[in-house]
């Protein structure tokens, strides 16, 4: 049946311009009119022909879908390469278009509007998340009709804590259900404070709990910020008595009275992080007294000071408790 095959070949030949549904319909009708023999063949043969056509079409549809997915991934990856390599030039382009005459602006106005909206959106998103991304590299590793694999490399900071995170997102579609999973999560962090959360970070990497990590990071950095501001406040308010030997970012604050030589109070402000993601401050008071003073302490005030301080914390909170400790030394 050479005629049938030639019709099929003509039907499946690449179309440069592309056609609308109506045009496609007319084309099919014309071919049937032009080649009545395809329709007038024996009933048995006709069914086989229709089935073969259907198979051919379905095979090509699958191939085209795969090809489109691959091209989309390629396009996105090249665009990402360009944006990474030529970030500055992109800003210049935006500036040039702003000043340009109407015609080229008309061509790009849709894109410009999109970009403007996205930039506004990004500012809102950054504010809401409390996380600033300084670099975002995405690479599409695999893309098909039912599966997308993307590799993300993010750099940024939350308050003064900086991080680098790398992970893969695998999106699969099984019938109507859409599943999104995190794979190969690795986290690198900078800063003195990170020793408090290293165990949690390794647990997060193990369970690949991406959202949990950032929830902990936000809460932890907010706590660090609060501690740092509080220490700084007391250092400025009582410069003669308060010292921060390891800087305001550390967990240690020393209170020494100029009048009482050898009498030192240490406040340790730790930030505890549980594996479930709870972040809470833990403050302790340690006292260092000369031997003489210790012998005179008949009521065991020095020994019980840490417990008294914990009771104060429960009632007054960190700032007021530290203030009252400093004031006892002032007298």
């Amino acid at each position: 049946m050479p005629l049938v095959e030639s019709t099929l070949a003509r039907d499946l030949a690449p179309v440069d311009g592309g056609l609308t549904d109506t045009e496609a319909g007319k084309l099919t009708e014309r071919e049937e009119v032009r080649n009545p023999s395809t329709s007038l063949s024996l009933p048995g043969t006709k069914v086989t022909w229709a089935e073969r056509m259907e198979d051919e079409y379905e095979t090509e549809i699958l191939q085209l879908c795969e090809e489109i997915a691959a091209l989309e991934a390629e396009k996105e990856n090249i665009e990402r390469e360009v944006s990474v390599q030529y970030g500055q030039e992109l800003s210049n382009v935006l500036g040039a278009i702003e000043e340009d005459d109407g015609r080229s602006r008309k061509d790009t106005s849709k894109l410009m509007d999109d970009i403007e909206k996205m930039e506004k959106n990004l500012a809102r998103q950054t504010k809401l998340n409390g996380i600033t991304l300084t670099a975002c590299r995405v690479k599409t590793i695999e893309k098909s009709k039912t599966k997308v694999v993307q590799q993300h490399r993010l750099m940024g900071h939350c308050c003064h804590l900086s991080f680098q995170v790398q992970f893969e997102i695998i999106e699969t579609q099984v019938e109507d259900t859409f599943i999104r999973k995190v794979m190969n999560l690795s986290i690198v962090m900078d800063g003195n404070e990170i020793k408090d959360i290293t165990s949690v970070v390794s647990r997060v990497e193990e369970t690949k709990s991406l959202l949990l990590f950032f929830r902990i990071l936000k809460s932890f950095s907010a706590n660090c910020e609060h501690r740092s501001k509080t220490f700084q406040h007391f250092k400025e308010k009582y410069p003669d008595m308060v010292s921060l030997p390891e800087g305001c970012q550390s967990e240690l604050m020393l209170i020494q009275s100029p009048k009482l030589q050898g009498c030192t109070m240490c406040i340790f402000w730790d930030i505890e992080v549980t594996l479930e993601g709870d972040v809470r401050p833990k403050l302790d008071l340690l006292m260092k007294m000369p031997e003489k003073a210790m012998r005179m302490d008949s009521k065991n005030i020095v020994e019980n000071a840490p417990d008294y301080f914990l009771n104060l914390l429960r009632i007054l909170g960190p700032e007021a408790s530290i203030e009252s400790v400093i004031k006892t030394v002032c007298v």
Partner: peptide, 11 residues
């Protein structure tokens, strides 16, 4: 210009 803007949008 257009491809560059598209790159910015993708970014």
């Amino acid at each position: 210009t257009l491809p560059l803007l598209m790159a910015r949008r993708t970014q």
